[in-house]
């Protein structure tokens, strides 16, 4: 997929566990895992905003466009 999710990198930088982030932003760990693995088809702005707030980062820190 052209969009790469760097959520695991940000989690490592912030020294936060997936479970804690999932609890903070109010989604299940299964859904967070889908997002981390890049299997997600779309991300809601509300979810993205919640992730950015929890990790104190910008959307560009999490998402990256790569030309296939």
């Amino acid at each position: 997929m052209a969009i790469i999710v760097h959520l695991d990198v940000m989690l490592a930088k912030r020294k936060m566990k997936s479970k804690d982030l999932a609890e903070k932003i109010g989604i299940t760990t299964a859904n967070l895992s889908i997002l981390k693995s890049g299997k997600a088809k779309a991300v809601r702005f509300s979810t993205l905003a919640a992730i950015c707030k929890a990790l104190a980062c910008q959307p560009s820190d999490i998402l990256e466009y790569v030309n296939d």
């Binding site: 989604i27 859904n31 967070l32 889908i34 997002l35 299997k39 997600a40 088809k41 779309a42 991300v43 809601r44 979810t47």
Partner: peptide
Amino acid sequence: KTENDLTI
């Protein structure tokens, strides 16, 4: 439905 399920 699959796309909706995979929208986080």
